[in-house]
Nucleic acid binder design. Sequence first.
DNA 1: CTACGCATGTAACTAGTTACATGATTCA
DNA 2: TGAATCATGTAACTAGTTACATGCGTAG
Lengths: 208, 208
Amino acid sequence: MAVLAILEAKPMTGYELAKFFDHSIAHIWQASHSQIYPELKKLEREGLIEAKQQARGNLATKSVYAVMPAGGDELERWANQVVPPLHERSPELLKVMYQEWASYQVAEQQFEAHRVYYLQLYVKWAAHAEDLRLGNTDLMRHRLKDASAEASAAVLAYKVHVYEGLLERAQMEIDWATKGIALVERLLAEAGTPPGHRAASPSSARRR
Amino acid sequence: MAVLAILEAKPMTGYELAKFFDHSIAHIWQASHSQIYPELKKLEREGLIEAKQQARGNLATKSVYAVMPAGGDELERWANQVVPPLHERSPELLKVMYQEWASYQVAEQQFEAHRVYYLQLYVKWAAHAEDLRLGNTDLMRHRLKDASAEASAAVLAYKVHVYEGLLERAQMEIDWATKGIALVERLLAEAGTPPGHRAASPSSARRR
DNA sequence: CTACGCATGTAACTAGTTACATGATTCA
DNA sequence: TGAATCATGTAACTAGTTACATGCGTAG
């Protein structure tokens, strides 16, 4: 569905799609080229998209895929079904849950990595949200060029809303990680390490 | 690793593990019995856990799995590696991104489902966090019964921190969905429907 | 004696990752 | 002429889901 939705805005080659999944939409949905190429073939077999051969250079050609009417119908059908939100699996939260097995140092590093990760995402997402608002993205220009003002408003508004949610999420994650670091510091202090003495991990108390 | 961590707190049968994955840990990690049983066999082959046959009734037996020393080492090794946080795929956000293809009604239902989902999670998580804090869970009692006060503090503190994060997350999602509903209402109003006239989906403007 | 919970599996399938491969084009 | 980028694939593998199956124990 992500492939269909993107191609609907602008016909593309598999390569361009892969690039696109790498930046713009990357943090909502990802796909590698090894997944995209077979998927394109499948969508073509189902009559939802169509490949047009385009020359590149003298010898080579490339396949530019565009959405067919049946593909538009499929998109609309999909969009009009409510999906139940679901619980993601989080390898990271799982680890934090059992962080008493780790040294204080590693526990702190884990939170720090979390903080840095979402700080970077915050910046990236904020920039992308701004581009969206200004209609600055390639795809938005294509998507909106022959839409009514009213329709454009909706197209934009939903996407901006998604990014606002992502930004709040990032902020929340940053706060959580910061509190996590403080927690580790507190535990470390409470462990009552005498000066000049390196604290052992709490898990080592368990072993013996 | 989830299986190892749980079994370390208390030896269990595959069935009990499956139950456990259904409630307590369910929103951090899930696993169905059809995944658990083969996994237990695999962990046993690797020497990380060991099955003890226990009678149940007269004829039947059951396998209770317990963590072996090698399993403890493996847990410690795992916990002491920082995992890079990662970008989940979100089918729901993907749909909201392209919600201009849906009717206003479905768009609103999607946000409403999101709100209700996280409201329920909020209640469930809050209850579980409270149980954790009071040491009210079965597993916590086992886990802590022969630990030092200091070690217990860490065991508890990390888990509580995870649940506090989940609660903030749920709150954030509820707010986001509520704003989403308001957004749909606004778009609907701006679409300028005359009284007594049913609004078409914005996507239908695109088609033709 | 019946229903519900305990207990344990397998099979078929879908999705996704990582690695292996290849070749043309374009720009410095 | 070499490196970066465009372009397109396949193979092997891991994880996870859904559905199919079976049978004992226990309480009412």
